[in-house]
């Protein structure tokens, strides 16, 4: 809907949701609708707008403008999932959600909602059987020149504590390849955003890639990316997720890579995971255990965890 807002701090003009939390802009006392000629002539269109309330989320992966949804009610955690091309980042996210959907909780944290249920469902549906095409991991995340990756959301609560929000980046591996090649490249801005904005990092390594014919290339890609991530880590928590740990892979290349990663990252946690094993939820357990930190300034949004929006939402409850 077109219009203006009387509040100078409202992000409406930047296509952000209403600062006061009104999903229907006509309900906000600060909003002034402007009716264009087209809108005035198409009466039915106007009627439709007024007869329903637009929600600030669709269920699909979130974008930059949607972060306020999660950050308004808690100090949201942004988990940067990083790894070379084909490391299995999306597959790992899919596995975490599939196991969560079967358990409902991670240790003492219970699932408390998600603004991206449709996005998770779209990933998981590829893994369902029986199916006509046979179960598989989701297809490769499409490469794009976006500024920000798709963000998948999960909320948890421990006991009666306030809710905790987590956003997981789902970025194509090509972003990190270009970033390593040229850290200032225009087409690596998505990877830079993750490195700048994440409150914690998960570095995904596919063990099987160190056993194949391309072991030299894989080792180079892993270590080159690890070096850049380590330089920009700024003491943030990082977990190295070694996938396919259930496979009995004979690789001489793995031990030296592990050693180099220890040198790069120093104090960090390293987990051996298999996506088919519920133990891979240990990764989620560690992510949740890190204390929540406020999102840093995110790509020019005007809000943090204590915005007028969040204050408004809280006042509604009291």
């Amino acid at each position: 809907m077109k219009g203006t807002c009387l509040r100078s701090d409202c992000g409406f003009q930047d296509a952000l949701p209403c600062e006061m939390g009104h999903p229907n802009l006509l309900d906000c006392p600060n909003f002034r609708a402007t009716q264009t000629a087209t809108e005035a002539s198409v009466h039915t269109q106007l009627t439709e707008d007024i007869s329903s309330t637009r929600l600030p989320w669709t269920g699909r992966a979130l974008g930059l403008n949607d972060i306020v949804l999660a950050s308004a009610r808690s100090s949201a955690n942004l988990v940067g999932v990083v790894g070379p091309f084909n490391a299995g980042k999306t597959g790992l996210l899919t596995a975490l959600f599939s196991h969560l959907a079967n358990s409902g909780s991670v240790e003492e944290f219970g699932f408390a909602g998600s603004f991206t249920l449709h996005g998770w469902q779209q990933l998981r549906k590829h893994t369902v059987w029986p199916s006509q095409t046979g179960p598989s991991f989701p297809p490769h995340t499409p490469d794009s020149g976006d500024r920000v990756p798709g963000l998948l959301h999960l909320a948890f609560r421990r006991g009666s504590e306030p809710i905790r929000d987590f956003l997981f980046t789902d970025a194509p591996g090509e972003w990190f390849t270009r970033w390593v090649s040229n850290q200032g490249a225009d087409d690596a801005k998505g990877a830079r955003w993750i490195a700048d904005s994440a409150t914690q990092l998960v570095f995904v390594v596919d063990r099987a890639s160190l056993a194949g014919e391309d072991v030299g290339k894989s080792r180079h890609e892993i270590l080159a990316l690890a070096r850049v991530v380590a330089e920009q880590r700024r003491n943030r928590p990082i977990i190295i997720a070694w996938t396919k740990s259930d496979l009995d892979i004979d690789t001489d290349a793995e031990a030296p890579v592990r050693e180099r990663l220890r040198e790069f990252f120093g104090d960090h946690r390293s987990l051996n995971l298999s996506v088919r094993d519920p133990q891979c939820m240990a990764l989620l357990a560690h992510v949740l255990s890190y204390s929540a930190q406020c999102l840093p300034a995110l790509g020019g949004t005007k809000r943090g965890g204590t915005s007028a929006f969040s204050n408004y939402r809280r006042s509604v409850d009291q």
Binding site: L55, R73, R157, S160, P162, I163, R313, V316
Partner: peptide, 10 residues
């Protein structure tokens, strides 16, 4: 959400 009930707290 449309009711205005935040789930920040139970």
């Amino acid at each position: 959400f449309v009711r205005g009930s935040s789930v920040r707290e139970q």
